[in-house]
Simulated assay, not measured.
Amino acid sequence: MSPEIEAAIRAHAVAEYPRECCGLIINEGGRDVYVRCRNVAAIGRQGDHFVLSKEDYFAAADRGELLALVHSHPDMPARATQADRVSCEASGLTWFIVRVDGTEGSVEAAEIEELTPSGYRAPLEGREFYHGVLDCYALVRDWFEQVRGITLPDFARRDNWWGDGSGEDLYMKHFRSAGFQPVELEDLRVGDCFLMQVRANVVNHAAIYVGDGKILHHLYGRPSRHDIYGGYWREVTRLVVRYSGS
């Protein structure tokens, strides 16, 4: 990284504080340059710390070869989170993370750490929650890939789609197109999924039956975990579905 690009990244991180900045390093006409991009993540919702504007991404790609993605960690170490590592793998790009601290009106950018794709996969149990990257549906997708070797489709989903008044009902809309069919609770098998309605007007949570009366699931804002299926979880279950192929 050249001193010019490093200075540009630090300036962007300071300018965007306390929000996370995000940008891209591209090679434009044989010269590496840093391109500031917009963070279009919803403000005030856990799990969406930065979402790089699609329009800015494609505009940068039209200008030159994409080399790296950059974002900041306000008041946090530049160490990669699980979501950073998962997203880095998906992007196929090198990532740079810059720490930026603000105290008593002074904002300063600190260390910059590099992250490269290395085959990382988040653990199924104890993973952090980052909506759209590591959430209940991501856990379902990862379980089927790691345990069954099945790749489920992904679906675009905004944070709080279940409670923002939009009327979206994503699980009920997409479970059949993802290869699932309804089954009876009495015929429960390992790998069946419970579609649940947790403090919402629509189905907004999924859990995987892993046997011995237990489910694996990932609640909003909490680490993924195993729980005994019954009681509250049975009360909020609206449908049981089984993968049968797309």
Rank of each mutant, 00 (worst) to 15 (best):
A78Q: 08
D48K: 10
A8L: 09
V241R: 01
S118P: 00
V183C: 11
Y137Q: 05
P123E: 04
F129G: 01
R141M: 11
I26V: 15
R199N: 14
H205A: 02
R141G: 07
Y120H: 04
K214I: 03
E111W: 09
G211I: 10
V202D: 04
H226A: 08
A42L: 12
R63Q: 15
A11Y: 01
Y209T: 03
F50K: 07
C88Q: 11
R234A: 14
K54Q: 12
P123A: 07
E104V: 09
E89M: 10
H205F: 04
Y130W: 11
D135F: 04
H71C: 08
A60M: 05
S118C: 15
N201E: 15
S177Y: 01
R31Q: 13
G191C: 04
R36C: 11
I228M: 13
A80T: 01
S177A: 13
H226T: 10
V100E: 01
D169I: 01
E184Y: 05
Q181V: 14
R31T: 13
E65R: 15
E6A: 12
G119A: 10
G64W: 07
N27D: 14
G211S: 10
G105H: 06
V40D: 13
A110F: 12
E235M: 13
Y171L: 13
C22N: 15
R176F: 03
F144R: 04
Y243H: 15
V51H: 09
S246D: 12
N160E: 10
G126R: 04
A206D: 08
K173A: 12
V98W: 01
G245S: 12
F175Q: 00
H217F: 06
R225E: 15
S91Y: 03
S118E: 14
V107G: 02
R222G: 01
L115S: 00
A15D: 12
P74H: 04
W95V: 01
T151D: 08
Y243W: 15
I208P: 03
L134Q: 02
V51F: 09
A68E: 02
Y137E: 03
I215K: 00
C21V: 03
G132L: 07
Y57C: 01
G149N: 04
G211K: 07
A13H: 02
G179H: 05
V100A: 08
D227C: 09
D75V: 03
N160M: 10
G179C: 09
E125K: 13
G92E: 04
C37T: 14
T94K: 14
L24M: 14
Y137N: 09
N39K: 06
D159Q: 10
A42F: 07
S53C: 14
G92S: 06
D48I: 12
R157V: 08
Y130E: 12
V100R: 02
R234C: 12
V236Y: 06
D56P: 08
D56T: 07
V133W: 00
A83V: 03
W143R: 05
P223I: 06
V40P: 10
Y209I: 06
C37E: 02
T103Y: 13
E16D: 13
Y130N: 14
W95C: 05
I5G: 03
G163E: 11
A110C: 13
L124M: 11
C193L: 15
L52E: 11
D154F: 08
M196E: 14
S166I: 02
P18H: 05
I5Y: 04
Y229S: 00
